[in-house]
Design a protein around this nucleic acid. Structure first.
Lengths: 190, 190
DNA sequence: GTCTATAACGAGATAGAC
DNA sequence: GTCTATCTCGTTATAGAC
């Protein structure tokens, strides 16, 4: 199943480098030495750094849709689905990196417009999906919420992205565990 | 009151540049042209980029302590104090930039250790102060919380930093308004 | 305290051989 | 597809004149 061709290796490694060091602190040279090729070979697959970034976000967005589909198919309750969504980020925290999209969002002003749009799309999609689950859960009497679902969804996405970013600097137990407990408590669903 | 000497001008401008573009996408050249000096003049005041970053965070931390003191002295209720704290970040959102510390936290792995330590200190101080206000409010029967105050504090700080970072990319109404409503609702203090 | 000049290096990118 | 070689530019940093 795993694709081991150079293009995929480059995407995998570049994503990790951006999640670790940010878009502007990662370079073709860095990527080349890590993968074991020359920078000119990277340019063959991704003509510019902007192209590489765009390809990364396209793949990342497709993977998000897949993951959400999976959760929607397998999840029983809306609470369980939301927990599964949070655990997506919780795994990223364990890897000691931030979300690709969160990393790019911090460098937003320095990004080519195609990348900016992709980042916006990813974030809006997350918020929309979360709000949907909350609404369904409230409609079915499974969840209770004092406030609007869009408020809660925006806050959850912000705290997940922020939690990942702060986690490395703060140290200690995983920040996203706190985030999950706080979020579920607010839904009377701890 | 305002200090207009070159060093202060450099600090002010560098901080804004980092808040806008991130630590690694801001350069001495960029800073020099913005302030109207040569890069060698910056080196006179701050010998290395790491020195400049450290001076920035030192000042930022001192300003935080001042701001927290101010809130503690002027605030009547703990709810009012927490709102004042949130509004600190809300103003930053209006400026269209992120927190200096949030920006640096994203680039954490690429920072000199002195800067890493300063970032950690800032974040822990914020969490500690927030938890303190929550505890006081709960003790006085002013606030109610289902969950621990440290959980709620870590989540608030994460959602504030995350909210600032996502705000530019997401567009629309201020994210931190949603964060504030969600946070206060969780404290039964909307 | 600010300048000019310059060093030493890394960045993204291209041409052309293999 | 990957390589060597090269280009141009931006980066941090230093030496020394004013």
């Amino acid at each position: 199943m795993t694709n081991n061709d150079t293009a995929t290796q480059l995407l995998d490694t570049a994503q990790l480098l951006i999640q670790k060091r940010g878009y502007n602190a990662f370079s073709y040279k860095h990527l080349a030495t890590t993968v074991g090729v020359r920078t000119s070979s990277i340019h063959y697959h991704f003509q510019t750094k902007a192209d590489l970034g765009k390809a990364l976000m396209d793949r990342y967005l497709a993977e998000l849709e897949q993951a959400l589909d999976n959760i929607d198919r397998k999840g029983r309750t809306n609470k369980a689905k939301l927990k599964q969504f949070i655990s997506l980020y919780r795994e990223t925290e364990d890897d000691g990196v931030v979300c690709l999209c969160g990393s790019l969002a911090t460098d937003y002003e320095t990004l080519p417009v195609a990348l900016q749009r992709a980042v916006s799309t990813y974030l809006r999609r997350c918020e929309q999906w979360v709000a949907e689950k909350i609404d369904e859960g409230v409609g079915e009497g499974e969840l209770a919420l004092s406030g609007s679902s869009t408020d809660a969804a925006a806050t959850l996405v912000a705290s997940l992205q922020g939690g990942l970013i702060l986690s490395r600097a703060r140290g200690g137990p995983p920040v996203l565990d706190n985030v999950q407990r706080t979020f579920l408590a607010a839904l009377n669903a701890s």
